[in-house]
Every structure is written in C-alpha cells, then in structure tokens.
Amino acid sequence: MFAFAFLLVPLAIVVGASFDDSASAYFRFPPERLSLRWYRELPVKYWHGLALSSAIALAAATASTLIGALAAVGIAKGSLRASPLLETFFRLPLQVPFVVTGVVFLQFYYLLFDVWRVPLVGSYAGFVLAHLFFCIPYAAGAVGSVITADLRHIEDAGRIAGATEWRVFQRLTLPALKPGLFSGFFYAFVVSFGDVPVSVFLSTGGTVPLPVEIFQTLQFDFDPAVLSISSIVIVLSALFIVFMQRIVGLDLILPGARR
C-alpha cells in the first residue's frame, strides 16, 4: 500500500503546511506556528480562478459527454456497425501531447482573430473549445465501453416483447448507458478542471484558471497563499468524491468497480 502513501502524503503535507503562520518565501514542513493567516489573506484572484476553472470544466464535461455519447452510440448502432476507423478517429486526441494541444489552439485562435476578429485567447469559449479536444475521447471511450453485446440482446428481447423503438431506447438502452455517461462526465471534468499545459497558453492577464494561477505562482513568485487555496481544492475534491460515492455509488464513476 506504499502507492497510497505516495499519492496521499503530498496532499496531506500541503494541507498541513497551509496552517504555518511563518511560511515565508519558501516551503517548509512541518509547520512552526499554527495560524489561519493564509486563509484570511487569500487573494481574490484565486477565488476567481476557482470559479473560472469550475465553469470551464462544467461546460467542457457536459458538451464532451454529449458529443462522446452521440459518437459511441452512433458507431455501435448506426449503419457502420463498430467501424474501427471511426473508433480510432474519436481516440485521436489521446495521441496528441497536451502541450501540443495548447500550442495548436493558441495558433488557431490567433489566426481566427487575424481573419475574423474573433477574440478567443483568454476567453471562456476559447478555454472550453480547447478542452473539448481532449475531453471528447474520454467521454466517447467511457460510453463506448458500456455498449456491449449483452445490451444488444437485451434490446432485442425488448423488441420481441413488443416494445416500440423509443421505449426500447428509453427503458433499456439509456439505463445501460448511465454508468458510461457518468464516468465519461467525471473523467472529462477531472482532466479539464486540473489542466495546466493547454490552458497556460490560452490564459491572459484577467482570465487565468486556478491550476494555471497556482502553476505561475510556483514557477515565478512563491506566495504561501497557494498552500491554502490548494488545501481548499483538496478538501472540496474529497467532499465531492465522497458525496458522489454516497449519492450515485462508485459503480457509476468507475464502471470497473462492481462491488
């Protein structure tokens, strides 16, 4: 279980260090004097970043789950039954390194601005579009993985029993897709919410998503407030996962975990 320590101890240390009043220009752990100073003195730009990141991730995950679900269902049930070429197409972005995606969209947005004066760099729509690029494969893959041969048999059984096509979709197909839709949305949200390498190219002065804000602080001018905002992110993430686990169950987030 060393793996769990390796994954979680750094997070615990961030939370611990955020309560160190004397945290100066460099990191220290364990803390020397406990206080809530870095929570009280948290600059508002981090809250803006958190709101922006959440809004981007929400839109990117929703849209990519929709597109990914249409793609997966269309591939599995349309005239081109399970075409491997189409599956490969929707997986294509997974082969493109994130930094490359960032550069590609930055240059594309510059071009759009030159030609049509559409300002996408540093805009909400600009972030969401670029994030869709790497979110769609996750969503398409997650939904595709729940469309099995069993599902086809179940649907056929429904038809033999006299159900209309719409009813088959509504009562049999859709419930079977639900875990795929949930996990697709979840992964797309996670990847989008934490993204630095794509967003770092698309950020401008006023609009900086939270991970990029933290990244730039760590890279250039350290500010102990990143410890407190990071701790807030960790605690919110933990609450969110536990909440999801309680409300919808792990099976919907992680289709592999059928327990």
């Binding site: 934490g194 991970p211 933290i214 760590l218 992680l254």
Partner: peptide
C-alpha cells in the same frame, strides 16, 4: 484513489516539492 486523481497535478506537485 479517486480523490487523488481528482486533485490537479499542480497541487500534487506542490505537495511533492514540500515532501
């Protein structure tokens, strides 16, 4: 495991550099 994968890489890196 899910919590750890949910937290941004940049936050995990901050923890690693403290560690």
């Amino acid at each position: 495991l899910l919590i750890s994968s949910f937290v941004s890489v940049v936050v995990k890196v901050l923890g690693l550099s403290l560690l």
